[in-house]
Design a protein around this nucleic acid. Sequence first.
DNA 1: GTCTATACTTGGATAGAC
DNA 2: GTCTATCCAAGTATAGAC
Lengths: 214, 214
Amino acid sequence: MARPGTASSVRSHGAGPQGDTRAALVSAAVAALREDGFGRASARNIAARAGCNQALVFYHFGSVADLLLAALDEVSAQRLDQYRDAVAEGTSIDELVPVAARIFREDLDKGYVTVLAEMIGGASSTPGLGPEVAKRIRPWRQFARDALDDAMQASGLDGVIPGESVAHAVVALYLGLELLANLDGDRKPALALFKDAEKLAGVLRAFSPTGGST
Amino acid sequence: MARPGTASSVRSHGAGPQGDTRAALVSAAVAALREDGFGRASARNIAARAGCNQALVFYHFGSVADLLLAALDEVSAQRLDQYRDAVAEGTSIDELVPVAARIFREDLDKGYVTVLAEMIGGASSTPGLGPEVAKRIRPWRQFARDALDDAMQASGLDGVIPGESVAHAVVALYLGLELLANLDGDRKPALALFKDAEKLAGVLRAFSPTGGST
DNA sequence: GTCTATACTTGGATAGAC
DNA sequence: GTCTATCCAAGTATAGAC
């Protein structure tokens, strides 16, 4: 197919004045997913946001679905980096919960995880998209697993709690909270949940074998 | 609008031989949401499933969105009843977790909560649908809250854990698990999670003030 | 109540000029 | 690489015959 280079060969013979359109399309796709949802993230919608022609979507990405996946790739990688930085601030449970709360609030404001949630929801209506999205969730689950393992070890709960399952649950919970919060724009329940979780983390610490200190 | 009676006045002057089409359309809508997802739950798709004409969707429900909401209403009410029955089997945490696991497996098989998940996902792309779906989630959160309150009381954890927040979290987790399971058809992580939760419920019981017995 | 036919809209995708 | 023009498919919704 007349698809240009996927990564490095793009800017080969004069891509344009102020940044290439390929990147603009990806950004526009992210915005479309966030603000209009999967169902309205059409080639025309995205192209209008990017200030270019609709045909360029197919020239650069071959299909709308592939552009959407590229958008998910970018926002996912970028956001995962920020998560890693934030989690590096602490290791024990009662240190991590406030961090999680802050990141969650940030996500609700900027709507990054919304992109992921939209893709997951949309995947059920688009043949072949499911596995691709699933592939891109794996790093998130792995990230949750690593952070949890560290926290469990720091709290002396190592081995007591099954990391694999809890990591899966954390990702699922996170997605569910995003979905519910975006449904009616009410993020109070989710924020209240994190506040309560902070309190509970303190209580749990008292029960942990090492008393919460390494 | 030329909309027929919403509930009782339907079968007033000869609705047809084998059950009225209105009910058939609702069932077909449920199936469409489950099997094809929100994005493909079109009037044509649903009508074909119901074995009738596409125009009848608009005659009976005015719009596709309203038919979808009717489908959500039915499956939600029906399923909530079954949940109430199941939860009545026990009150303490370690009694409820196996029950929750069984129901969850049942839902994955029959795909009832999928309908809810699809509507939540689709709502972000359909103007005005969000609040309507949110309204229909409220009974679920209330149900979770009641079940949890009973369990907390039976386990002597009354007051320790904030019911409101945990109920919200339970609903969110449930939705997230469904979404992830439907993404690639892999329900193993979710089922493993419930198995681990059963074990943990036993451990938690040992820590609870009353030792798990009322 | 149910059907056929049709009007209108939007969206994916391609061809070809520049 | 980008645009215009266009084709085609699918969807919502309505009008009108039966």
